[in-house]
């Protein structure tokens, strides 16, 4: 699976980046490719390019706040979860997403 996603937390200094790490680690262990954009207080980092988005099978938004530029993902299969889900169970999340996608 080719995953792209965004993480964003309230204070925008810690959880945003921890969640990114967790998703990336979990995805790699499960054999997926992944790119995550962070929207912290410092601003957007590792921005997803149109090519990233075009190549993605699924978009995972892990955020406790509203995220910016969602219009990029129009027409994409997209799932939104609270950031705590990624903190607690990144692998299970990705597996559940995969299962849902397989269902069609």
């Amino acid at each position: 699976m080719n995953i792209v996603g965004i993480t964003a937390c309230i204070a925008g200094i810690a959880h945003t980046y921890i969640a990114k790490e967790k998703l990336v680690t979990a995805a790699k262990e499960l054999g997926h490719s992944i790119k995550i954009e962070t929207q912290g207080t410092i601003g957007v980092e590792d921005q997803l390019t149109p090519a990233d988005v075009a190549a993605a099978d699924v978009v995972i938004i892990a955020a406790d706040i509203g995220v910016m530029n969602l219009e990029r993902f129009v027409g994409k299969r997209k799932v939104e979860v609270p950031i705590s889900v990624v903190m607690k169970s990144p692998k299970a999340l990705i597996q559940k997403v995969e299962a849902k996608l397989a269902e069609g």
């Binding site: 699924v58 299969r77 997209k78 799932v79 979860v81 609270p82 705590s84 889900v85 607690k88 169970s89 990144p90 692998k91 299970a92 999340l93 559940k96 997403v97 849902k100 996608l101």
Partner: peptide, 16 residues
């Protein structure tokens, strides 16, 4: 450990 707490995830219905 690799044990994850997926209680919150299980209660979520992922909508695409």
């Amino acid at each position: 450990s690799d044990v994850e707490d997926s209680t919150e995830l299980d209660s979520l219905d992922l909508n695409f």
